[in-house]
Amino acid sequence: MTATAVAAKKEEERKGGWFVRITIVVVVLLWTIPTLGVLVSSFRPEQLVDSTGWWTSLAHPLRDAEWTLGNYRSALSTGGFGNAFLNSLAVAVPSTVIPVTIAAFAAYAFSWMNFRGRHLMFVAVVGLMVVPLQMALIPILRLYTGGATLGGVTVFPDLDLGGTFLGVWLAHTAFGLPLAVYLLRNYIGSLPSSIIESARIDGADHFTIFWRLIIPLSVPALAAFAIFQFLWVWNDLLIAYVFLGGSHENRVLTIALADLVGSRGENWHLLTSAAFVSMALPMAVFFSLQRYFVRGLTAGSVKG
């Protein structure tokens, strides 16, 4: 970096500094206050939560009667949460890894391989994002429990996947694929063609190029999608309910939460704490993958 560049950078920071910082703080506040309300409420006794605004407790941060751990205690002691946590993990991890892998292969083919109708095929895949999963659940469940035959020929075997983890993974994979293919195709397709071409000249086949070159280069995009998919699956209630059920052995964390509150909502104050309990893992995942978004990672991996 030349001396002029350093000076220019300094100049830029002086100019944009205050404006940037204030804007960021305002937006962050706007986005955080709603959650803050629940966070504060999760530490307040039930009667207070229901009778005064959460902000009033902030006025007396040191008054003992304003604060309690009771909500966390009763949410966690309801039982079965450990098991539900494990189930959520057993659902979410494979439901993230499998679609990422399958989508990466497909995105590579859509970007760098030539075959008939690939534009149309790609757009059809992306268009499938619009399918409301509620409309897909009944047909899929029917396939899971009875298979499908067309004119006497079995087109889908009866795998008896209802109530199994495999059934949930496949469903989540399918529902996550359109977005995954779309995001990854956008990223992989924008990689410079010179890389792929020179690798071809060196005699590398598509599989090698994909695995040794494209995947390492695509880590930020893969990580970004992995986060979304993981969060989506972790927070999903409907698919888990349909394909795993709500029994105590099989239920995932979101179902355990919904059960805690009940259909009429008598115990909704417990949700304040439970919502934060269920957020803990996704936030940890986010923070651990955050480093993949750091500037220069892409360029660095190419420069070697």
Binding site: R142, G163, G245
Partner: peptide
């Protein structure tokens, strides 16, 4: 015998019955 309650009963039971499960 297991009792299984759901706050999503109406939607769930429709999916399970029509889905053959």
């Amino acid at each position: 015998a297991t009792i299984e309650g759901s706050s999503q009963f109406e939607e769930q039971i429709k999916i399970r019955v029509q889905g053959g499960n």
